[in-house]
Amino acid sequence: MIITSPIFARLAGLVVVAVLLELSFFSRIPMLGTVPAVLPVVVVVLGLLGGAVIGASSGFGAGLLVDAALGGILGVTSLALMAAGYLAGRWRETYDIVSTLVPPILTGVLTGVASMTMLAIHLTLGIDASISVLAVREPIAQALMGGLLATGLFPLTKWILRPALVDDVRRRSGRRPAPSMLGTP
């Protein structure tokens, strides 16, 4: 991804809008015993489009905003989202996205990972409450809903960031994409 000032502004805007949507909309629509988590989905999609650094940085920023808005422990959500964004970015840098099914599946899995990581961090920091095995239901449900959300959010985010995507720039200028330097597709 080619980062210019306008693209940086778009990235920041996407993260802020995702935070607001998560707090004011998605988290207030109960489904499958939990609520959809749109923030990990957006972070993973940014990682898939922009690479590990973009994924990790946007996860860090989004997490800080959420923790500050909800009076949580600053850094916990950042750490969980950063992990998801970084892993998505590493996937993009290592493999090609050869099928339209890859983004939703990967986003679903990494949304579940982010949710599970956050629960694990909170448990490590100490939760003064009983823990039911049903606690794993939330990451699984959020993973499923994350995969569904990604089917719409991945193409939308790709369209918003299109001027910065290297492959798209090459394609539009009539050049064939260069083979990946980081691994075999």
């Binding site: 998560e22 707090l23 004011s24 998605f26 988290s27 207030r28 939990t34 609520v35 959809p36 988590a37 749109v38 923030l39 959420v66 808005a69 909800l70 009076g71 949580g72 949710s115 956050m118 629960l119 909170h122 939760i127 409450a129 606690a135 939330e138 959020q142």
Partner: peptide
């Protein structure tokens, strides 16, 4: 008015 809510149900925080 409720203006925000956490997506982690075990945190259960509202703005």
């Amino acid at each position: 008015q409720i203006i925000g809510r956490s997506s982690a149900t075990y945190l259960a925080k509202l703005d």
